[in-house]
């Protein structure tokens, strides 16, 4: 297990550097300039600004500088916010997005697993069909449509929940739920398939032949085995949540990183784009790492293979 974890850790670091490098290079290819009034500025003015922001140096030097600064927690200074540090802006907005993402994942996984387990156990009954209709709806309708519908029904029409902003726990419910629909749907469908397969396997018959009750068979033998493959789809789902949050944050006026990211791209705010990309990709790589390790913890075949 230790070797397995270490291996994953190495992959994680390598992936991270590849992503940072690629992002940095693609920044160089972006058209346009970061300066709002570039058209009206003289060559000299631009040169001074380039000097200030270090944009006149050769690309490799810029890159090395950037990496060195990154290790000191300095991601440069935002162009659009008059030189406020990127780290500072991100550290204000990042927790909000993370909280929303985690809430959405938790809601999605819990409801999704429940739907999947029920559908799998009650296969080919009305329970199964209902759960799977919910799942298909969740997959085929984009989350921003749910967001708009929820907002209209529950905030505008019946005014049960606030329309927008990020003031208290009650503000979380609509955006988190809209974001979680894709998770509910994906996890639900996947879990159903896995449950059906596990319930037909020989070791379930063995468990029944021991005289265990249906509940014991389901809880002790089926769910754990069905969960193993489901864990692998959590990584990609997180990506879904991240991309989904770009729009959801806009719809509910949530001051998170997603909304920030969109604006930074409009304004060619290189340091902000870089910083956000780095944060997003580290988060994603970290999630994949956690998922891999979890997979090892839950499946003894992996856990023990590397450990001896």
């Amino acid at each position: 297990m230790i070797r397995y974890t270490f291996e994953r850790l190495c992959y994680m670091v390598v992936t991270f550097f590849v992503i940072v490098t690629l992002t940095f290079l693609s920044m160089q290819l972006l058209p346009g300039t970061p300066y709002r009034n570039a058209a009206k500025m003289t060559k000299e003015q631009i040169a001074v600004l380039n000097e200030t922001y270090g944009l006149n140096q050769p690309v490799p030097i810029q890159f090395v500088k950037y990496i060195t600064n990154m290790f000191h927690g300095n991601l440069g200074y935002s162009f659009q916010y008059d030189g406020r540090s990127v780290t500072q802006i991100l550290s204000e907005k990042f927790p909000i997005s993370i909280e929303l993402g985690i809430e959405a994942i938790i809601i999605g996984v819990v409801i999704g697993l429940l739907l999947g387990i029920i559908a799998g156990i009650k296969r080919n009954t009305i329970w199964d069909y209902t759960s799977m209709i919910i799942a298909v709806l969740g997959i085929s309708i984009p989350s921003f449509i749910f967001a708009a519908l929820l907002q209209y029904w529950f905030a505008v029409k019946y005014q049960i929940f606030p329309v927008a902003y990020w003031d208290g726990p009650i503000n979380r419910i609509l955006p988190a739920f809209s974001l979680s629909t894709i998770v509910i749907a994906t996890v639900g469908r996947f879990m159903r398939t896995e449950m059906v397969e596990v319930l037909q396997s020989d070791y379930i018959t063995t468990a029944e032949a021991k005289g265990l009750t249906t509940m014991q068979v389901i809880f002790k033998h089926s769910i754990r085995n069905a969960l193993i493959p489901v864990i692998t789809i959590l990584g990609p789902l997180f990506v879904n949540i991240i991309t989904g949050s770009l729009v959801i944050e806009k719809i509910f006026a949530i001051p998170g990183i997603g909304e920030q990211f969109v604006t930074s791209i409009y304004t060619n705010d290189y340091p902000m784009i870089m910083g956000t990309t780095i944060i997003y990709s580290s988060m994603f790589i970290f999630i994949v790492f956690i998922v891999d390790v979890l997979y090892g913890v839950i499946d003894p075949r992996i856990r023990l293979a590397g450990g001896k």
Binding site: S201, D202, Y203, T205, T206, A207, E208, A209, K210, G211, L212, T213, K220, H221, R224, N225, I228, I298, D299, P300, R301
Partner: peptide
């Protein structure tokens, strides 16, 4: 019948590769 299974009447299955729970 659950009280009879495994206590009074037990069964051995054909394929030992799949008859055991892999995660227990």
């Amino acid at each position: 019948i659950q009280k009879v299974r495994g206590k009074d009447i037990s069964m051995i299955f054909q394929d030992p590769m799949t008859a055991l729970n892999p995660t227990m």
